[in-house]
Design a protein around this nucleic acid. Structure first.
Lengths: 218, 218
DNA sequence: CGTTGTGAAATGATTCACAGCT
DNA sequence: AGCTGTGAATCATTTCACAACG
């Protein structure tokens, strides 16, 4: 039985990084990886890697390491990407269009089955093989296609109202590109992807450890 | 003199959220905000808000709160967004084009002064008012225009090589959209924006606290 | 009164160090 | 010998609680 204690948030983030690292390697390489190797590739300690994995079970063999194929499969299973997630993109502006066409989503099991927009000029058009539907069809599409995930790329002023629609339709997870905090019921998860916030973090590091010379980041 | 001790990474992230919250409010609203108000708006405690701000100085008035205008200005100064950062976009594919056209970057002081790509078909074209240049011109543009920040939106296989070019040219901060970990010298900062990793976090929460019913996230 | 700023306490996460397996 | 899994120790972050201030 897997060790089922508390799971640190940062560990889950790293799980994704472990998987990405494994997937980026030629599958023909040595059948096995050690926590040391994985840690070095990611700039963290080997103990950290082992602790993270230990939250979910025992995947390694003492003296040998982790079997490449097994660990990859285990990580996918843990993260929930060993299946297909029917997803939709809401808002077919610049960001929405780029996301729809991003081929990596499909290879990761996030299947964009529809896009939605309020602009009559683009409703009915096709973007990257996905038909753009009016928002009035959102509810029925989410229900009939069992859509669990929405990628929200609408303008900030309508983000909350659109979210309410999504939640009412039954969406359980939202990747939010709009620069606002969304209020949702407890059973719905939000992950934020605000570009400007990431850039501000960069600006901070540049102006803090740059000119002044001191790099007093914890 | 500002309290200049250790600065927790999470605090810097929240600073951006405080600023976003303040900027989203009508400037005509009450001249003052309390740590309680700000915390409630972001789903964190008032003590957390005060501790975060205390890392950088004393901005509030006991019994009153924080002056809206002063706090906004202080946050911009701390984050380094009270100035213009000359930036470039490298890779004019789907993501690169969306980023170039994202109007919020300019209002936040991140001025995209050029874009670069290796595809002869799009070199010379203009995207959102920005001219696409060949990579051979990267070095001279970065130097003559004092570019500090690059938004890297090239395919994963060439991300590291492109990064090396950027670093050699003098770029000091990179927002990386490619799904790889970039190796850079210590004086260069990297912030990662990998869409698929964010989606995996969402999938994890959905498959973990969903079907099985237990929400054992720390 | 309400609110800030801040030590002290509590909680959370990472690293250490080593027993035990291959 | 090399490596995992894990309790114990260290380090980081958050919350508590309250004195001081307007």
């Amino acid at each position: 039985m897997p060790s089922s204690g508390r799971i640190p948030r940062p560990s889950v983030k790293r799980l994704s990084l472990y998987l990405r690292e494994l997937e980026s390697r030629a599958a023909a390489e040595p059948q096995t990886v050690s926590s040391r190797e994985l840690g070095d590739a990611l700039g963290i300690t080997d103990a950290q890697v082992r602790k993270d994995l230990a939250c979910f079970g025992q995947f390694g063999q003492p003296g040998v390491g982790y079997a490449y194929a097994e660990l990859t499969a285990a990580l996918r299973r843990i993260l929930g990407t060993d299946r297909v997630w029917n997803s939709i993109v809401v808002g077919a502006g610049n960001i929405g269009r780029a996301v729809i066409k991003y081929p990596r989503l499909r290879t990761k099991g996030f299947e964009i089955i529809a896009a939605f927009d309020s602009d009559p000029a683009i409703i009915g058009t096709e973007i990257g093989g996905v038909r753009v539907q009016p928002l009035t069809e959102l509810d029925s599409t989410v229900r009939t296609q069992a859509v669990a995930i929405a990628l929200l790329a609408v303008p900030a002023p309508v983000a909350q109202a659109t979210t309410d629609q999504l939640v009412a339709a039954g969406v359980r997870g939202i990747l939010n590109f709009a620069p606002v905090r969304l209020a949702v019921p407890a059973h719905v998860s939000i992950v934020s992807a605000d570009l400007t916030i990431e850039l501000e973090q960069l600006a901070f590091r540049l102006s803090f450890s740059g000119p002044e010379g001191n790099g007093a980041l914890a």
